[in-house]
């Protein structure tokens, strides 16, 4: 017995080389995060209080001037509004459609892999390529979308060159491209639900809808929360499709926060002002993420109580 205890103690005690390895691994991670995350974020935060033009080697303290300027201009409100609409619509669209297609495909007896692959292809296709193809499809005079609308007797639309439609067109493309990701996540979640639950439900006379409503959906809660949170953070930072499809236009109709930030940094060479925009966006994402996590935890706590 004594011998066993000793062996147990020895097994928990780490050798010198193991400890060195752990220190190296931890230090590598710390250095990695410090160099690629903490330092740039700290530098950008500092830069937001400076008149910062790196190409001109200008870095002079201006206090809150950059923040004052961006809050003074109407572009910030416009970009913030667009970003929130974009984020909410695309996040919900992607999540609901992903769940719908996952349930549909999961219920199929044959062809699951084929359909899962088909729906997942847009996710792994480059956003640049997809944006260019959709831009062509939205072309008012030669694009195929107006052609099909005309066959259905619907008046041709101006899509990307109409300020009331441009943002929705980009959102539609993004939902189409990103739904496959949510679908795959949901399908993975569904495989973890024990089949016995459905068998029991069937014996109790549950309809398909009731089984989905009372078994599938509640048990996919963690997956849903994950998709919602990651989507929210991702779409708050939308840039590529806006840059390629509308350049923030017509006018500033589809300006998002990151596009606005990019314009200030690389269009006007004002990295200080761009950093200020970045930190306003950072604050918004932080507030929403914390709120979302709080709500989730509160519900969890209520459930366990």
């Amino acid at each position: 017995m004594q011998h066993q205890l000793k062996a147990g103690k020895n097994s928990r005690r780490l050798s010198q080389s193991q400890r060195i390895m752990i220190v190296i691994a931890v230090m590598a991670l710390v250095v990695f995060y410090a160099v690629f995350f903490i330092f740039p974020i700290g530098y950008a935060l500092t830069g937001s209080f400076f008149n910062w033009m790196p190409t001109k080697r200008v870095f002079s303290f201006v206090g809150l001037e950059n923040y004052r300027k961006i809050f003074e201009q109407s572009t910030l409100g416009l970009a913030m509004g667009n970003t929130l609409v974009f984020t909410v619509v695309v996040t919900l669209g992607r999540t609901l459609l992903g769940l719908f297609f996952a349930a549909l495909i999961y219920s199929m007896r044959r062809g699951r892999v084929l359909f899962r692959t088909i729906y997942f292809i847009p996710v792994i296709t480059s956003t640049v390529a997809v944006s260019m193809v959709w831009k062509w499809m939205y072309e008012p005079s030669n694009g195929p979308l107006n052609y099909y609308l005309s066959l259905a007797g619907i008046a041709p639309q101006r899509f990307l060159i109409d300020s009331s439609q441009a943002m929705w067109c980009v959102m539609a493309m993004t939902i189409w491209k990103e739904t496959g990701y949510a679908m795959v996540m949901y399908m993975a979640g569904m495989t973890g639900i024990p089949g016995t639950l459905y068998e029991a439900a069937e014996m109790d006379g549950c309809t398909h809808w009731q089984a989905f409503r009372y078994i599938t959906f509640p048990l996919l809660k963690t997956t849903t929360e994950f998709i919602l949170l990651t989507s929210f953070v991702t779409y708050c930072q939308t840039f590529t499709q806006i840059d390629l499809m509308t350049k923030g236009g017509p006018g500033k109709a589809s300006y998002t926060m990151v596009y606005y930030l990019y314009q200030e940094a690389f269009g006007n060479n004002r990295f200080g002002r761009a950093s200020a925009i970045a930190f306003v966006l950072f604050a918004v994402i932080l507030v929403f993420s914390v709120l979302q996590l709080r709500i989730t935890r509160t519900k969890e706590a209520e459930k366990h109580a």
């Binding site: 101006r158 060159i161 109409d162 300020s163 236009g249 017509p250 006018g251 109709a253 006007n268």
Partner: peptide, 22 residues
């Protein structure tokens, strides 16, 4: 002159006046 001169002309007169009718 900076690029922003003509990019703003485009944004305000082509986009806003011609497309958005401002």
């Amino acid at each position: 002159y900076p690029d922003s001169y003509h990019s703003n002309l485009k944004k305000y007169f082509y986009d806003e006046v011609m497309l958005n009718g401002k």
